[in-house]
Nucleic acid binder design. Structure first.
Lengths: 202, 202
DNA sequence: TAGATTGTTAATCGATTAACAATC
DNA sequence: TAGATTGTTAATCGATTAACAATC
């Protein structure tokens, strides 16, 4: 299993996983051509993306279950990783309650917020913690991955604090380009921008 | 102002807008080089992206306010467009309350849901409507743009209904590849997949 | 066997960057 | 003027697709 894979290709793995899981249970094997047609992609690209799994069998295709497992393994879904939601507003609360992360071996353990009215409460069964003694709390919860759902205005300063307390990767929903030190990883999701781009494609 | 612009380039326009708006008010002019450094991009790419605005002045750069206006105009932020949130669960409710869409001239007018307990109520001052007589309701609200926040299981069937009732573009949060007819536009945001990809980049 | 399918090498396509003339 | 900056043409880089040998 070779490990050189571009981010572009990596991003397609969840797409394959979702599609493969959506198939009827009695679909045991599937070819690159069938996947490509279903997803509107070129079949060579599908084969190239899936080649690392060594699951392809000539004349047969890929065994669905094994392929899903191999893709999940490549994405790191096997070793469960804890994550925290930072900012327990509307979006943060919704993500706390969202069950979709477990599919990728991600365990949302807590939210962090500095609203005294929220601290100590639970949302969707998960505790809302304060931001004092953040480092200790993150260590106790074994969290190095954060989802940042604070207002844009505070995003950079909260990110700075998170990174200084041991967070290594941030999924950022604020429409702000975070400045982070070498070694930290950030991905951005700007919902409003996505909707604006969609509108201009109508 | 030329109009041939790839989706790739189009997606960068909100990034420029956000950055330019974040600058101190007394920054009147800015060069492509300064923008590039701030955003970690190549400066030629910035110039290419901004050339359509005809705002660049040699030796001077771009006048910030005019540049923002030109970018907003290109994105279509000027003619305000109505949109609906479909699925008034946690995520849908959070998006109803989110104020960031107005920056792009998008007006969230209502939510749609088929939970009788929610229909007729308001969330963040916006009405939650039922899905009966959807076509009429969408027409009355003048909505052709929808944000789909229903569980994956129902995403395709709800999308079908939306499209049959006049919706032309869907921002889809369900981890499902929607099958839509020619002419309809879809963009997908899979939050869990994004977090999984981020994790595997740590 | 013949035919369907994989994986890889070479070619193409599209996006970014380099080079540079134009301008103020 | 000299120097800073733009916009565009040509070159490069990276990702996708075409061609094809290998295989069962």
């Amino acid at each position: 299993m070779k490990n050189e894979m571009t981010v572009t290709a990596l991003q397609r793995l969840p797409v394959y996983i979702n599609y493969l899981k959506s198939l009827d249970e009695d679909v045991k094997y599937i070819s690159s051509g069938a996947i490509a047609r279903a997803l509107g992609m070129g079949e060579v690209l599908v084969r190239k993306d899936l080649a690392f799994t060594s699951q392809g069998r000539t004349r047969v295709g890929y065994m669905r279950g094994e392929l899903i497992s191999a893709l999940e393994k490549r994405l790191g879904c096997n070793d469960v990783k804890n994550a925290a939601i930072v900012g327990a507003g509307g979006l943060g609360s919704a993500l706390l309650a969202y069950g979709g992360f477990v599919n990728y071996g991600i365990n949302i353990v807590a939210a962090y917020d500095n609203d005294a009215a929220k601290i100590g409460t639970q949302i969707a069964g998960k505790p809302v913690c304060g931001m004092d003694d953040l480092q200790k709390s993150l260590e106790e919860n074994n969290v190095t991955l954060a989802v940042l759902c604070v207002p844009a205005k505070y995003a950079q300063q909260v990110a700075d604090k998170l990174l200084s307390c041991g967070i290594k990767a941030i999924l950022n929903f604020a429409p702000v380009l975070l400045q982070v030190p070498q070694g930290a990883v950030v991905r951005n999701i700007d919902v409003a921008a996505n909707l604006a781009v969609l509108r201009s494609l109508m």
